[in-house]
Design a binder for these strands. Sequence first.
DNA 1: CTGAATCCTCTAAGATACTG
DNA 2: CAGTATCTTAGAGGATTCAG
Lengths: 127, 127
Amino acid sequence: MSGTHTGVPSQATPHADRITGDVYHSAPVTGLLRRLGERWTPAVLCLLARRARRFNALHREIDGISQRMLTRTLRGLEEDGLVVRTVFPTVPPSVEYSLSGHGRSLLPALSALMQRPDARRAETHTP
Amino acid sequence: MSGTHTGVPSQATPHADRITGDVYHSAPVTGLLRRLGERWTPAVLCLLARRARRFNALHREIDGISQRMLTRTLRGLEEDGLVVRTVFPTVPPSVEYSLSGHGRSLLPALSALMQRPDARRAETHTP
DNA sequence: CTGAATCCTCTAAGATACTG
DNA sequence: CAGTATCTTAGAGGATTCAG
């Protein structure tokens, strides 16, 4: 693996071997994963995956979350286009949150990552 | 889209609507997502998905990562059983990192989440 | 070559309290 | 009901140096 290096890092592959920090810094790939990695995001998405809910319903059903963090989580998901916020001009006001089409499209992958294979043990190295 | 299946498909957990903070605090579900949400984890996994690599190879190919963060990221992935660390007792020592079976099993879901639908626009919610 | 050890910064997250 | 406004804390992330 030595001499064939032409000195040009040009990627022939669509998903180049070389991953620049820039790509991972600004690309939505990192953004979305970071969002999903936030403390309360999985809980909110799991609940909204079943049915749309109002703010207080989420607050009641997610044990331990503060109003502040629920708001921030929902705002973040809304910014990413995963959740839709619908305001009903009633008195008192009620706001309903639901998954967007995009959010819903992420559910299969998301639930796949939520399986718990308990595969903590290191496997034997297979060369 | 496979599945006319609305609502949440999976979640092997039998219990339903109520999600306790305890579950999401200690369960591997949150742990894994948090791991994937870390800054450099996607980059490392993407590279290791192609082939096993040595420490310095990763350090060179992931632009902007520091040695400290590469070490921490790899240690974390190792703890979660997603990455296998193999030490070759050479001089100087060389260490090879590769995806474990568990780590490899996560790739489809992971790449699904890495698609960028550019669906930032809030869809017209029709109340 | 592959890390570990320090030190520092920035922000996600938590705890209250207040409001249209 | 559905938030916002502050304040504080814990830890992720970064820069640099040292070591087996």
